[in-house]
Each structure stands twice: as structure tokens, then as C-alpha cells.
């Protein structure tokens, strides 16, 4: 998968968010403050502009720019959280290209704008002519890192009724399918199915993190908006893969 694939994924996500914007906002109205769809749509609109302006040439650069832009434009809880997912994934893929799969160094939430002095510009690829591709295993590692980043930043466990309830099972399913040697289509199908199941499973939960937690028992019976938007990420991934 090359930069074009990842660009397509992000753009497909942006389209899905725009289309799902009102639904996400309605979900947030029920147990939050009625802005989740607006927030993500504003962010992903900015991401599309940033991508078509910078035209980043590597998978890592695409995702890092996506994450940075989300942090810069979204605000709220979902901005830093989704921003961290993409920035962590970008860091892993950038490292993967250089060193093969593995954990990148020091890109915790503390380092969202590092290296110091570099502002928020994504690192330029070393040689834009060189065609950079990453493997499904790299992608699995990237999702694992993204998930770890969200967990660390937001402190949510599975079952707390947050985006983690979709992101965690989807990441597990994706990694599992990759390890089992499945092809891209099957891998993405598995991830999407798990994300969907995770999102639906938030309905009966009582929220323990984020704004919905203030509602206590009244948060029960509603799908978590962040979990619902995470499903869009995985649906877009399958679509980008020609699903």
C-alpha cells in the first residue's frame, strides 16, 4: 500500500464523515453536546485541503499530516484522540519504511508536534522520487500504536463506552487476520465487522469516560458517537481497498 492508498483511505473517511455528520451529531446530542459530527467534518474537510496542498509522498507522511491537521482543527475530545491515532500510525509507517515493522521511538502524546522547532509540518520524505509502500503487517503495527496512543491519552478501557470500544476490537481483528495470512480484503472485512460489533456493543454500556459519563445511568441505551465514527474509519479502509 502506497501513499495513494492512504490518501484514498483518508479521503474516503472524509466523505463518510461528511455524509454521516448529522447522524454523529444526533448520537452526540443524546449523551453529549451535539457536536461530534460537526467536529469531525470540520477536521476532515481541513485534512482534505491539507492533503491536496501538501501532497505527501509516503504512507507515513499522509497519516502524520492527517493527524496533525485533526489536532489543529478539531478541538474537543475527538480532535486530540483521532489526531493521536493518525500521528502514531504515521510514525510507525514512517519508521517501517526505514527500519521495517516495529515500534517507533518517543511519539507519545507529549510528542505530537515534535521534533521541537519543526512546528506542525509533517516530515518530508527523504526522497520523494522513491516509491514507498508498506505491508499489511506494518499497517497492523500502526493500528496497534494508534490504539495504544488513544488509550494512553484518554485513559479509557474497553467497556468505558468510547471510541476505544470500536478501535480495540477492530485492531485486534485486523492484526489477527494479518497474522493468519489473510489478504487485504479479508483483513479489512474482519476489522470493519469487529468495529461495527464494538460500536453496537456500546449501546447498553454506562459511560465512564468523556462527556457521556456525566449522565451516569442515563448514558445507557445510546451508541457512543466516537465508536460510531470509528466504524466509518474502517468502512473507508475497506472502500479504499476496492471493497
Amino acid at each position: 500500500m502506497d501513499a495513494r492508498f492512504f490518501t484514498a483511505w483518508v479521503e474516503e473517511t472524509a466523505r463518510a464523515v461528511a455524509a454521516g455528520r448529522d447522524r454523529l451529531t444526533r448520537l452526540d446530542a443524546a449523551i453529549g453536546d451535539a457536536d461530534h459530527g460537526t467536529n469531525l467534518d470540520r477536521g476532515f474537510t481541513a485534512v482534505r485541503e491539507a492533503l491536496s496542498a501538501a501532497f505527501p509522498g509516503t504512507p507515513g507522511a499522509v497519516l502524520t499530516l492527517t493527524g496533525t491537521t485533526l489536532i489543529r482543527k478539531v478541538g474537543g475530545a475527538s480532535g486530540p484522540l483521532y489526531g493521536t491515532v493518525f500521528r502514531r500510525m504515521g510514525a510507525v509507517l514512517t519508521a517501517a519504511r526505514r527500519e521495517g515493522p516495529g515500534e517507533p521511538a518517543g511519539h507519545g502524546p507529549a510528542g505530537w508536534s515534535s521534533p521541537p522547532g519543526a512546528g506542525y509540518r509533517p516530515e518530508a520524505p527523504e526522497d520523494p522520487e522513491e516509491e514507498v509502500t508498506v505491508t499489511l503487517a506494518d499497517l497492523a503495527a500502526a493500528f496497534e500504536a494508534g490504539l495504544a496512543g488513544v488509550r494512553k491519552l484518554g485513559g479509557a478501557q474497553e467497556g468505558d463506552k468510547t471510541m476505544v470500544d470500536a478501535l480495540a476490537p477492530a485492531t485486534r481483528a485486523l492484526s489477527g487476520a494479518v497474522r493468519a495470512g489473510r489478504g487485504a480484503r479479508e483483513v479489512f472485512d474482519a476489522a470493519l465487522a469487529a468495529a461495527r460489533e464494538g460500536a453496537v456493543a456500546t449501546v447498553p454500556l454506562m459511560a465512564r469516560k468523556g462527556r457521556a459519563s456525566y449522565l451516569g445511568e442515563r448514558s445507557i441505551g445510546h451508541e457512543d458517537p466516537g465508536a460510531a465514527s470509528t466504524v466509518l474509519l474502517f468502512a473507508a479502509l475497506r472502500a479504499a481497498a476496492g471493497g
Binding site: D35, T38, I71, G75, G76, P80, S113, Y120
Partner: peptide
């Protein structure tokens, strides 16, 4: 000031 009911961004 962030957007309506949305915290400001770090910038």
C-alpha cells in the same frame, strides 16, 4: 474561544 461547545485547539 473554540467552536460552539468544542474546546479550543492547541494552536
Amino acid at each position: 474561544p473554540g467552536e460552539i461547545f468544542t474546546s479550543p485547539v492547541p494552536d
